[in-house]
């Protein structure tokens, strides 16, 4: 599971460098995220721009990431491709995560507040 992280001001931006978050990699994703967000700032953006497919296992791993954040931190999702966006909306997870079509929109969004 390839992830990269960088900090811009008060924001931590984590980019998923894979094209799928599925049952085959969900556990590895969750473990990798656990290390990355342990000391996360209040705003975290998960850049999903490269991800073209997510299934229910992958969705569960992203939800798990939200619970791993330090108290008070917010997680925004950016760059959702249509297939990924569909899964978050069908499962009503768009009520929990802030979804943004682009990184620029996410950086100007609630996570920065």
């Amino acid at each position: 599971m390839k992830l990269s992280t960088r900090t811009e001001g008060q924001l931590q931006i984590i980019s998923v460098m894979e094209d799928r978050i599925d049952a085959a990699v969900a556990r590895a994703f969750k473990e990798a995220m656990r290390d990355m967000v342990e000391h996360a700032p209040p705003g975290v953006i998960l850049d999903l721009g490269q991800v073209s497919f997510i299934d229910s296992s992958g969705l569960g791993a992203v939800v798990a990431t939200l619970k791993l954040l330090p108290p008070g931190s917010k997680l925004s999702l950016a760059g959702l491709t249509p297939a990924v966006d569909r899964v978050f909306r069908l499962t009503r997870m768009d009520s929990v995560f802030s979804l943004f079509p682009t990184m620029d929109a996410a950086m100007a969004g609630p996570a920065t507040a």
Binding site: D55, S56, S57, L59, G60, A61, V63, A64, L66, K67, T91, V96
Partner: peptide, 8 residues
Amino acid sequence: VLPEGGFG
């Protein structure tokens, strides 16, 4: 309180 599974 979010579930992490059972979405399938």
